[in-house]
Amino acid sequence: MAEKAAEFNPEVFKKTSDEKMSARLKMWLEMCAHCGLCADTCHYYLANEQDPKMMPAYKAKKVLDAIKKKGKIDEATLNSLYETVYGECTMCRRCTMFCPFGIDVASIISMARGLCVSQGKVPENLVKVIENYFAHGNQMALTQEDWIETLKWMEEELQEELPGATIPIDKKGANLLYTVNAREPKFYPMDIAHAVRVFHIAGEDWTMSSKGWDDTNLAMFAGDLKSAAYVSQLVRDAAEELEVKRVAITE
């Protein structure tokens, strides 16, 4: 589960940063020469009147400064770090393409999000969806019943046009396991029908799974890597149980 330690805990902060500080991250953080080539590769920098605080190098330095203090940071610093790592970077990795050293700022930001997680500082909505993964196996808290019902409904919809089209559920040994974003059964159910149409016409030997069918991983974006490992394991388990050859994720 997403840790929800409500209070700022410098010891946990230091312990977490020690654990997360791999040689690679340490090298990247120390190697940045602040040359500024990353500045206009970043959409935040460009869209915010070239505010130097939006430069990827600045954001990385902010993380380094927080870590250097070995947990002796105040709450204001933590809050400011939180705003930067969640609110001013989408971890898109574009800056890395232009960095002369290939510094992976996204990994640095992800690590810093993990530091925030250790302090219970996670955007509220992400905490909710992470709980959903644990309780229901998908980010939208759909029950298995809802899920199967949605598939049946989409199957019927499509059969009006393509009488032979079916959605095989838990078909062992299928060539392909198709997984979706849980936003599809919740908000865009027709997306599922559109995919079925493709598989049916292609003559694919495919299946969907009654569990482990949500291919999103918002725990990863939250920086909560323990939960992220759990979430990705759900799909892996489904694939292994069904002995499929390939797994496809939705658009």
């Binding site: 971890m91 574009r94 393409m97 909505n125």
Partner: peptide, 20 residues
């Protein structure tokens, strides 16, 4: 291609919603 800009909705930004 690989050099395209992020749409701005990545990294969890969409579900974070609210103040983000």
């Amino acid at each position: 291609g690989a050099y395209n800009f992020c749409c701005g909705g990545g990294g969890g930004m969409i579900p974070m919603a609210g103040p983000f």
